[in-house]
Each structure stands twice: as structure tokens, then as C-alpha cells.
Design a protein around this nucleic acid. Structure first.
Lengths: 347, 347
DNA sequence: TTGTACGCGTTATCAT
DNA sequence: ATGATAACGCGTACAA
């Protein structure tokens, strides 16, 4: 039972393939009656054109890809919604693609560009430390969104980026905790080898400690588990890591989790240990996802301006695609939102 | 700057295209040295094979698609993880595809089958009321997972399904609330036109009322907003709908939300209105996602055996693909997990 | 307005 | 072990 093709339809209709093609693609040069007849036959036979063949021929497909590393993270789903609306508004279509944690997002992009004839790419999350050499192979404009600030050595002319200054915002968070009297602040962050936002946010933490003339207690730095069992930015990971922290017995009065999801996991571990939030320990997150506002206690967090960033991401990409602008690097301010999960302590 | 192709590589290497192809696809009939040389040139020139062309030519791609309607829903992300592991274990690769809420998942599947030469399809969520005529066009085996039980009229021989008995489980939930003394139970569910799990769960609610000889108070049936502003199964939707419920002023002592995410939205609306959960109003969810266990109060819910269902989904698909089994319809038992968000009342 | 024929980039078949 | 060549299914010049 071989699949039905455009040729079969043409034969069935007693017309040439190009006429069928014209009917399919709303081409003007076709007799309305012929078109209707063809579409009827297509429907009757359940013919569906083969996208691979189409992509192979088409010069440009007017589509833009969004590559997400960790689609499980609610922070990204918020952004995706806004970005998609913007893309469609401009008459383009969005190709949403999930990048596995072990995959290299640039490799995936390389394939996708050829396969789908993309016009542009948006990277959401993931690593920022890609080799210039590889990035240059990407023949269409691309923007890294919320993937952390790029290292200086990378040529800024070949890509765009949208981000908050993760290091600065992170130290803002920790400074806030110092300001309300906390001295022993644990941080839940990525492993030290991390080359993504995890590293930057840890840098900010260290900086804040330095600014306050205090030495970082390495026992209070909790490294997320990676790979095997659970997603990196998951409640479960936050939970497990916090339990480990408690087991260590090192004293602390506040936890800074580098994502809201992790913070929620931490809250649960604390609750299970009979530790109240915020009365006994303050917890602060990062991202500003909706869930944090729904949680109980409502989560204090460093909010990234999700919507503005998503909007800017799309705008920037299209401006570069149409040649209206050169590549840019936009840094957005974060906003500390103080809710119920943090509390001042008397020192 | 036209893209580099396999021909260019062949020319550069001074070999034929078929040799390059062999190098690319780990074909046995090739001299290791030649292969190494070719791969080297490929790397140097950053050549990436075009997947569209590959799919066009390849007879079978050994890939299975997972079509998810509402990838935002954490219930599905849990399932996806398990399913993916199973697919890879069998040496296949998973094509994860997000179906927009306005799209018809079967239409999308039809395109994808041709484009990617799929061997099988898994539908996660979405509608169950598809026409047999259209489903028959799908030339590969497929299984509907957690999309609700199918209507009897559909020919059961042409597809498989994995589900819990949504109607029965739902009435189990409502009966539980009756049993602990609640009489006026609100339900947050999909619009009445819904043809997905929303309808089935509402049916179960009505049935429980009938079993208790009580008339359903239509004012306590809250229909989710659809389309425009927010995802159907989102905390926000649960929040908004609950506010509307409160505004109506009809008395109730319990809320049954047909998904945990909605229940969390409801909790917030209640909290904002100064209503305590569970002291003043009990809230019960459905799904059994991790978040419910992390929430505060920990959510009472009807847990679907996510992992078992995901495993069964993959197993069943492969059994049908390999001809080991005929299509089947597996119904899993749900489990009522009583946590902190519900409380007995004295009538 | 319609049909014919070629080519997109790759893999499979068949020689060599 | 390697190379030439015919498909794969479609879009599109170009001819009619």
C-alpha cells in the first residue's frame, strides 16, 4: 500500500501535476472550477503533501525555529507563547523544537536550517559557550535568549542576545538577604563546571559575599544533580539537594535557589524537616514564573521581564533578518519581587 | 552562498557521492581510511546532510512521533520522559511534536507520517472524537494515551488506547467528598461542548450526584475559558474561574478541579478571598502531578499511574508495530491520594 | 489556463 | 570497495 502522491491525484483528475500543485498552493493561475474539483478529489482520497519534498524544493519557507533546552521549565513556556504570537503576527510560522539535554543546540540548529529552510533561529536557554567557528556555519540570523551573557571573546557581530545580567541580578538577590540580616546563605545552583546561567548566578553570589567582606562557606553551595534521574531545573532536584544540605548540618538562615522551581523543591524539604518558611528559613527564587505567585508561601523572587524579553527577542530577530538592524546585545533589568517566603532576621 | 551538499564533499574528496553517503551512514562496505578522510573533510567544511532529502529517500526512519496537545501541562511532561526512554531503548528515535490547541492532531499526524517516515504515533491528550474515516488514513499504528475513553461507535480494531476510566474515577472523587460530609461541591471543568476528558469527568460528577439522590446545582459547574488568553489547563484559568464562582455567591464547601494545575489556581483564589483550604473549603485535583505533592497544602488528588501508563503506551505501540499484538484498549485504575487539601465536614 | 520536464539532496541498486 | 545512476515527491520554468 504505497502512499498516494500528487501524481496519483493528477491522474485521477485528468490534469497535470502542476495544476494540482497550483491548487494546493493557492496559486493565482488556475481556473476556480478546476481548483475546486481537484481539492475535492484530494479530500476524498485523503492526500497529504509530503513536507520533506516541499522543503527540498522551496527556496524559503518563511519559518523561524525556536530551540528550547529544557521545555519542562515553565519559565520557557511563558516566553514561547509570546514569541509564537509575534512570529505569526508577521506571517511566519514557528517551528518549536525541543533540544535534549545531552544534545548540542547548535548542531540541532544546523540540521534544522537545512531541513526546514529556516529564516532565523531563536535559542531559548542552554549554554552560551559555543565556538565561533561553529556558529559561523549557521547561515541565518539567530538570537540567544535568556541563555546567560556571552563570554567576551566571542565575536559580538555574528549573533544577537537577550538576557538579564545574571551575575549582577544574582548578587542583588544575595545582597538583599544580607540587608535583611541574613549572614549564612545557602545557594542551590548548577555544578561548578556549568557554562550556563548557573555559573553566572553563582558568580554573583560570590561577589555579594565579597562585598560584605565575608568568606563563602563552601558547604553552603549546593550543586544540582545532573543527567540521569531528573531534569536539572526540577522541583525534585531542588528537594533532593536541600535534603543533602540539611544533612550536612551547616548552619544557614536563607536559601537562594537559582530558579523558582528549585526554590519550591527546597520549601518542601524544609517543611518536611519541620522548618518553617519564612519564620525559620527564608527562601528566594529566580525567574518570576507564575507558579511562584501561586505557591504558598508566595515566593520572593528575582523576576525576569519575561514578556518584554520575549517581545524583544522576536523583534530583534526580525530586524536582523530584514537587514534593518545589525546584531545587538540587549540586557534587561531584573526586578526583585518581595513576597512571603523571605523574612528579616535580627542579627 | 548556496549551501554545501554531498556532491561538493564528493568532489573535494575525489570520490563518488555514494561513498560519501556510506561514510555518513556507517555503511559496512567502505574502506576505513577512505571513511576517515571523508569525515575529516566533512568536519572541515561544516557539511550537514539535509534531512528533508534523507526522509524523502529513506524507506524507514525508525522513528516514532509523540504528539502532545498542551505541552505546558506538567502531567504530560512526566509521561514524555518515560516514553522517550522506552523508545530509545528499542533503538528508535522520538520525534516530539507540539500540537497547537487550534490544530487537529490527526491532521498534524498525517503530515508528519509522510514527512518523517514514521513507524508509529503516540497521541498524548487531546480529543478522542475523531472520525474513523480520517483515522484510517493514518498508515502506521497509533495509540491514544490519556485522551479519554473513546466512544463506542469508533472501530476499536484500528487503534489502541491507554487511559483511566475518567468518568468512574471522577465519580469516585465526588463520592469521596460526599462521604466526608460535603454536599455542595463545585466542579471546574471544560466547556460543555468539550469532547475530551473534560466531558467524561463532568459526566462522573453528575453520576455521583445522581447516586446520592441530589440534583446538580448548575451554578456550581464552572466552565474553563478557552482559546484566546490562556492555556486551558493553567493555574491562571483555575484562578479566574474560581473568582467567578465566588462572585456568583452560590454556597459550596468543596471544589473538584479536573486537573491539579487548575486546583492550584483555585487555591489561590480562595486564599485571596480569605477562605482557608481545607478548613473552610476542601479542594481536590486530578492527575497526581509532582507539583501537587510540593504544594502547600499538599493537594488531595486522583492520581493517574503516570509511569505505568507511559510504559504501557510505548509497549503497546511497539507490539502493534511489530505485529506481536492486535490493537488493545487498556484502562488503568486511578488512585485517590488523600493529602492535606481536603477535610471532613459535619453535616 | 494548463501540461511537460527538470532538479532539489540524498539513498539504494546495480555495475564495476 | 567504489562509482554511476535511478528514484523519492514536489515546485516551477517553460512551452503549449
Amino acid at each position: 500500500m504505497s502512499e498516494i502522491t500528487i501524481k496519483d491525484i493528477a491522474k485521477l483528475c485528468g490534469v497535470g501535476v502542476s495544476t494540482v500543485s497550483r491548487a494546493l498552493n493557492n496559486h493565482p493561475d488556475i481556473n476556480p472550477e478546476t481548483k475546486e474539483m481537484i481539492l475535492q478529489v484530494i479530500k476524498e482520497n485523503g492526500f497529504v503533501p509530503n513536507n520533506s519534498a516541499r522543503n527540498l524544493k522551496r527556496v524559503e519557507a518563511n519559518s523561524v525555529a525556536v530551540l528550547v533546552k529544557g521545555i519542562t521549565n515553565p519559565f520557557f513556556t511563558d516566553m514561547i507563547e509570546v514569541i509564537e504570537a509575534e512570529i505569526e503576527k508577521r506571517g511566519y510560522s514557528m517551528v518549536l523544537h525541543h533540544v535534549e539535554s545531552r544534545e548540542d543546540e547548535v548542531d540541532v540548529a544546523l540540521e534544522l536550517v537545512k531541513e526546514k529552510r529556516l529564516r532565523g533561529i531563536i535559542f531559548l536557554g542552554g549554554e552560551f559557550a559555543h565556538s565561533e567557528e561553529k556558529l559561523r556555519l549557521l547561515s541565518v540570523p539567530f538570537v540567544f535568549s535568556t541563555a546567560g551573557t556571552q563570554p567576551e571573546k566571542l565575536n559580538e557581530k555574528i549573533y544577537s542576545s537577550i538576557s538579564v545580567d545574571d551575575k549582577t541580578e544574582s548578587s542583588k538577590v544575595v545582597n538583599f538577604l544580607f540587608d535583611i540580616g541574613h549572614k549564612d546563605i545557602a545557594i542551590i545552583t548548577a555544578k561548578s563546571e556549568d557554562r550556563s546561567v548557573g555559573k553566572l548566578r553563582l558568580d554573583g553570589y560570590r561577589e555579594a559575599y565579597m562585598q560584605h567582606g565575608r568568606k563563602v562557606e563552601e558547604n553552603l553551595i549546593c550543586a544540582l544533580h545532573e543527567g540521569e534521574q531528573y531534569e536539572q531545573f526540577s522541583m525534585e532536584n531542588g528537594y533532593v539537594v536541600t535534603k543533602e544540605l540539611l544533612a550536612r548540618g551547616t548552619k544557614f538562615t536563607a536559601i537562594f535557589a537559582i530558579s523558582d522551581v528549585l526554590a519550591i523543591g527546597a520549601c518542601r524539604a524544609l517543611r518536611e524537616a519541620g522548618i518553617r518558611v519564612p519564620q525559620d528559613v527564608s527562601v528566594i527564587g529566580y525567574d518570576g514564573i507564575a507558579l511562584g505567585d501561586y505557591y504558598n508561601p508566595r515566593l520572593t523572587t528575582l523576576k525576569q521581564p519575561t514578556k518584554d524579553m520575549a517581545l524583544a527577542t522576536a523583534n530583534l530577530l526580525f530586524d536582523v533578518m530584514t537587514g534593518k538592524k545589525a546584531h545587538q546585545h540587549l540586557v534587561f533589568p531584573g526586578e526583585l519581587i518581595i513576597r512571603e517566603s523571605t523574612k528579616a532576621v535580627n542579627g
